[in-house]
Design a protein around this nucleic acid. Structure first.
Lengths: 112, 112
DNA sequence: CTATTGTGGTCTATAAATGGATCATTTAGA
DNA sequence: TCTAAATGATCCATTTATAGACCACAATAG
């Protein structure tokens, strides 16, 4: 009972995925690093790296981020230290929020 | 002949994935949006949204980005227009790069 | 306090992603 | 130019992700 992935994505999502893909390919080529080598270092197959660089949205988040990391591409405009710091702050903030999202019984927040 | 996903990720990757997860959960709770509703709007199951908010790296890039988008979380610190612009510039730059990464036969670039 | 709703976990069947191999083609370097 | 190497594409076998249902529990609103 799974009929997934006829998914439709927003333009924003498609562009974000493609941007990341292009940045990865750029960085790899700038470093003159063959796909085969990068794939090995990332622990993935060359085929998967191809899909990533092609902007396939159906690749796992972790592998794509890892490849980006190996190429020195900074996610969220954060280097390693800033990222850890952001994460700590976000966790802190999250802990202060109500743990459930219960909607008030009639329409306060439906601004989508 | 596929034995994938005993994957190991760098700390940076793990933190980046978790940061995105926490930001998503934060944004959803701030909006008082039940998981069920957000999942419906994203066209995914509630279980998958749970994994996303938990920081599971094995979720597809597209779905995670789409959920983030639905919550107004900006990827790459770029709104919709900036993103399109970045993408165009990156494509331009990519087109100027050599199309293959051929390593010079002896060690110029192995600074990893 | 209580009723109600959201959430986290588990289970199963199915769809999809991935690895690994192969082949043809393109490209960069000598 | 020559040629070794990189890329792009396809195939198949297997692993994995996902949907969808269910349950027990937690937490919020009243």
């Amino acid at each position: 009972m799974a009929k997934a992935a006829n998914r439709t994505y927003s333009l924003y999502t498609r562009e974000a995925v493609e941007l990341l893909a292009v940045m990865i390919r750029e960085a790899r080529l700038e470093r003159k690093l063959p796909a085969k080598e990068l794939a090995e270092r990332a622990g993935i197959s060359r085929g998967l790296l191809q899909r990533i660089e092609k902007g396939d949205p159906n690749c796992s988040l972790g592998t794509v981020f890892e490849v980006a990391y190996l190429l020195g591409i900074s996610l969220f405009n954060s280097d390693e230290r800033a990222l850890a710091s952001n994460l700590a702050m976000s966790k802190e903030k999250l802990s202060l929020l109500p743990k459930m999202a219960r909607k008030p019984q009639r329409g306060v927040d439906d601004d989508f």
